[in-house]
Every structure is written in structure tokens, then in C-alpha cells.
């Protein structure tokens, strides 16, 4: 019994590490964006609390000035500061994925 729980936790951690929600190729671009902002299309935003998970993750990226999440449409508007480097599509997509949601598109604007 003493060893059961550590083994169980290790198994869970290994399972978690082995599970990849791979990003689409279009979102793996690591080149910093050159636009003033970006519009992200996100799925699974089921509650105001969920939106904050995304807000906080995106706001922590370099030169992100403001984040606005529309729960009904799944559109996340990100405003960049007028400074470089701006975040890349890969950074934006990873921040959304790490918040626990599915990102399907990043468009500069």
C-alpha cells in the first residue's frame, strides 16, 4: 500500500506527459508578429472564469497590452504595444493551449 500511491501518481504524470494536443502547423510559426494586434479563434470557453485563464496567460507574453475575450463568439482580441519583439503565433497558441482550451486560428490585424 505504501508504494501504491507514488506509483499511481507517477503513472498519472507519465500519462499527462505523453498526451499532446498538438497545435496545427499554421500555429507553429515562431516568427514575431508585425501587426498591431491579433484575433484568436478559441473553442471551449465555457465560463467567465475560463476566460480569465486565457486573459492572464496572454497578458504575460512580451509586449501584450490588452486582451479581450468574447465568450459567445470565441474570439480573443489581443492588442500589442508599439515595441518589439511582439509575440509569435506559436507563443499566442501555446498560451491558449496551456490555459486548457483549443485554438484554431491566429490572424494579425
Amino acid at each position: 500500500m505504501r508504494f501504491l500511491l507514488p506509483c499511481l501518481l507517477a503513472t498519472l504524470a507519465a500519462c499527462a506527459s505523453a498526451t499532446h494536443h498538438d497545435l496545427p502547423d499554421a500555429l507553429k510559426d515562431a516568427t514575431p508578429m508585425t501587426t498591431k494586434g491579433a484575433t484568436l479563434t478559441v473553442l471551449g470557453l465555457s465560463c467567465p472564469n475560463c476566460a480569465t485563464n486565457i486573459d492572464l496567460s496572454l497578458a504575460a507574453l512580451p509586449n501584450v497590452q490588452d486582451v479581450s475575450v468574447n465568450l459567445d463568439t470565441g474570439l480573443v482580441e489581443v492588442e500589442f504595444r508599439d515595441a518589439d519583439p511582439k509575440p509569435s503565433p506559436l507563443q499566442l497558441a501555446t498560451a491558449v493551449r496551456n490555459s486548457g482550451f483549443t485554438i484554431v486560428a491566429v490572424k494579425g490585424r
Partner: peptide, 25 residues
Amino acid sequence: LAKWRFHRADLEALDTERASLIAGV
């Protein structure tokens, strides 16, 4: 406790399906 979300299917902007395993002491 440890929680591993082994299933996530985000279907629409709001809609989602999730399942997790929980282990602990």
C-alpha cells in the same frame, strides 16, 4: 490530489467535453 485530464473535446466557442482521472491520498 493529482488530476489528469485525459479527454478534452472543445466543440464550439462555449461547448466542451472533458474527463479527468483523480488520484491521491
